[in-house]
Nucleic acid binder design. Structure first.
Lengths: 145, 145
DNA sequence: TTTCTTGCAAACACTTTGCATGCGG
DNA sequence: CCGCATGCAAAGTGTTTGCAAGAAA
């Protein structure tokens, strides 16, 4: 839905915060930020190691925290007890299957508008947000996305 | 906000699902279901063991999953990577401090309205929901609750 | 009496950390 | 050349599991 950040922008974000630009970081960021999914650290690791056999899981974790710190991904935790990383940081709904754990991003004008209304009701601008809905994935085809 | 379930109702819910009624389960449920907080398993354990020195952490975990299964609590996972258990299962917002992790429940008419809109838009009634807003707790006093 | 539950300790899974080596600026 | 980043393995943390003993139905 939203264009992911360019490499140039990413690098200048790194510089702003005094982070060094390394090939490992670039590879990991590139993969996560362009993901349409909500990958786990392990999944990211297995993906990036294919073309970069020298990347370690520890570096993946460190880079993900860095991206979190930069506000470029959101760390989402579910009952499965491991973190997933979502590059979609705009207000949206995660539709989650309570049986298999699959996640679908859902966006809608109406919901966004009402959500904004709630936020203005609070008189504070939050630094982030999260909305989850539990719907069995067998019923997902009824949803018009 | 909402009255918590009575002991009698709890016991009949147990019977419905074929779960046995034990003193450990009753103590744990009683504490969790009347909690105004979002306690972790450990916190629940330390609380119930005060009056019931024979309860184990494993039983706390098993009972919490049982309550989850009965739909009486919601398991909430945050970046801290441990589960919290929320007896408030009606649609509400968890206002979370990104610094200290404190959580405040927030309910409002608009939220109920948002909920109704989501259902009509999706054409499906979700089995559960979760809404989080990240707001530093220093600003919480501006929220009218 | 049968079946489920308990408590313990060990096993697990994910994440973080300490440290020597290596690389970016 | 300085200081941060990397990779490895070990440590850490929260949660789950296997099993013998015990309690509920």
């Amino acid at each position: 839905m939203e264009k992911s950040i360019s490499r140039k922008e990413l690098i200048s974000k790194f510089h702003e915060k005094g982070y060094k630009v390394t090939p490992q970081r670039l590879k990991i960021c590139e993969f996560v930020l362009s993901s349409k999914d909500h990958p786990t650290a392990e999944e990211i690791y297995h993906e990036v190691i294919k073309n970069n056999p020298t990347i370690s899981l520890a570096t993946v974790y460190k880079t993900l925290h860095l991206l979190s710190d930069l506000g470029l991904v959101q760390e989402l935790n579910f009952a499965e007890n491991r973190s997933r990383f979502d590059p979609n940081i705009s207000p949206h709904i995660n539709i989650i299957c309570p049986k298999c754990g699959k996640i679908l991003d859902y966006e809608s004008k109406n919901i966004k508008q009402l959500w904004d209304m709630i936020i203005s009701e609070l008189k504070i601008k939050p630094s982030g947000q999260r909305m989850d809905l539990y719907v069995e994935c067998e019923k997902w085809d009824k949803i018009q996305s």
